[in-house]
Design a protein around this nucleic acid. Structure first.
Lengths: 136, 136
DNA sequence: CCGTATCCTTGCCGATACTG
DNA sequence: CAGTATCGGCAAGGATACGG
């Protein structure tokens, strides 16, 4: 994303009414982080690991139908890099690798929990809105 | 996404510990909804409209550097279809179109607020985790 | 079992041009 | 001003094969 400072001469009322950062540079960084973290598979894995605790690779793969092995590896690596999950390799044959959430990952999971709850609660309303919109 | 019921014979402990639905079919629908709603631009527009209240098309475009006109239209349409935003066309020349959050959109914005706060609070920690991971 | 490497298709998204 | 339409590049992501 291009990170233009955005002079913004227009209407500044309503500013600071919600949860935005004051500094536009911070805002841009946060936006970038949100963009990476609010990925579909990241949210799903976060949820799964929060529910089940420690899991191994194939166990996760089986629990998430629709994900390819590539995407799973990729997402787990990114989450590990971001400090969300901890990866433990056991030196046995056949190899065994366990994944679990770090405290950072857990805290993000809790933050997303509100979104999951929202989705569950308002699912019917969204579907109805779509039907109404589509018949036009 | 393929919506396999997933028999899941394995470990069911930890189940219902978090915020997941009991029914895997509901779970799949919620996951689909999350996938659509957790889009980067959706989150940004939600945030923006929550902060600023009613805004017109170009005003939004100027406030969100990096978004193309196409993506803006597309995202706004999808949000309108999902019942998140209300679109008001004023019959004047030059044309004027206002966008504002519906109560549904506002509630989603509040749910995401937790994620924004998390991102602001833990940004430094994530960046540090990345640096540590990268030097290996 | 747990990955990485490679190819290859699909569709996203930006750029541009055009209407009401 | 607020869009729709069309084209093209490019990168995300699936399928497959192979390595530790």
């Amino acid at each position: 994303m291009s990170v233009t400072p955005a002079p913004e001469t227009t209407d500044q009322t309503h500013r600071d009414s919600a949860c935005a950062a004051a500094d536009p540079r911070i805002d841009a960084l946060v936006t970038e982080l949100i963009g990476r973290v609010a990925d579909k598979w990241t949210m799903v894995l976060l949820e799964l690991l929060e529910e089940r605790g420690e899991m191994r690779f194939t166990q996760i793969a089986r629990a998430v139908p629709g994900i390819s092995q590539k995407m799973l590896t990729q997402t787990l690596r990114r989450m590990e890099r971001d400090g969300m999950v901890c990866r433990t390799v056991h030196a046995v044959v056949p190899p065994r690798v366990d994944y679990r959430l770090t405290s950072l990952g857990e805290s993000l999971g809790e933050a997303f929990c509100g979104v999951w709850l929202w989705a569950e609660q308002h699912l019917a309303r969204v579907e109805q809105a779509r039907r109404e919109f589509d018949e036009r």
